[in-house]
Amino acid sequence: MSTQTSMKGKIAIITGASSGIGKACAYEFASRGAKLVLAARNLEVLNSIVQDLLLNGHEAIAVRTDVTVEDDCKNLVDEALKRYGKIDYLLCNAGISMRALFKDVDLKVIRQLMEVNFFGAVYCTKYALPHLLASRGSVIGVSSIAGFHGLPGRSGYSASKFALQGFLETLRIENLKNGLHVMVAAPGFTATNVRVSALTADGSPQGVSPRDEKHMMTPQKVARTIAHGILRKRRNIIMTTEGKLSVLAQRVFPKIIDRILYMFMAREPNSPFK
């Protein structure tokens, strides 16, 4: 493996590592030689992933972590340092989604989205930052096209991703002379359980994806793209042509893209717009 594709000897913390993009990143980073600290609330699932990685000759530990709890995030960093002595990559991937009109949504849903998607990244970054500065490492936030412009029916999700991107961009500028790499990764629609567990207006999970997932990005493809971005020290990665076009159109033809997004989301089965 060349130095351009290798993560050999690097220590990576991955939140939301029990499924979807986080799990795929665990296997992708491990295949490139990284040593892993995997975080999620479900310790049983995390341990099964760790055992599989160990059986395949990789190094990893599991740390039960609820990213909405500041002390859990501090403990995650402490456990990484206790085991490996340094941190090179912090992948802030833990996240939840929602599907409801703002006029109908219980405000506890918005608060929960912000706690997981935004404050989870803030807490982990706060405690990992001194060690990432020491290693001249990377902070990576898994965002979304919804972090570049509002997505109807996802007000809390978009708000949390806008906040995440603003935080990471500011962190990047503050550390321009400190060697810290900060990257925002924005996948397109990805075939994970995030839509199944997305919160409805009352905070209950919707339980089924409103979209046909056969033609979506796979978590494995997203993980490969994130790994390439880290190694090339990219700033922002928008992973689909549709996403790139929509971000550009938002700047040039904002009224048109508003209408397109409305129609796009309204076509979902059981759309709240109907």
Rank of each mutant, 00 (worst) to 15 (best):
F102I: 15
V105T: 15
D106H: 10
L107R: 08
K108G: 13
I110M: 13
R111P: 02
Q112I: 01
F118R: 03
A121P: 00
A121L: 03
V122D: 05
A128V: 06
A128R: 06
L129A: 09
P130I: 13
P130K: 06
L133F: 03
A134T: 13
R136Q: 13
R136W: 00
V139H: 02
I140Q: 01
G141W: 00
V142Y: 04
S143P: 06
I145W: 03
I145M: 07
A146W: 02
G147S: 09
G147F: 01
H149R: 10
G150D: 06
G150P: 03
R154C: 13
S155H: 11
S158T: 11
F162L: 01
G166T: 11
F167G: 11
R172S: 14
R172E: 12
R172A: 14
E174F: 04
L180Y: 03
H181D: 14
A185N: 00
A186R: 00
R195M: 09
S197L: 11
L199C: 10
L199A: 11
T200A: 06
A201N: 07
A201E: 11
D202M: 02
V208D: 09
V208E: 14
S209A: 12
P210S: 07
P210Q: 06
R211E: 14
K214A: 13
A227R: 01
G229M: 03
I230E: 10
M239W: 04
T240N: 04
E242V: 10
E242T: 13
K244W: 11
L245E: 10
V247D: 05
L248V: 15
A249G: 08
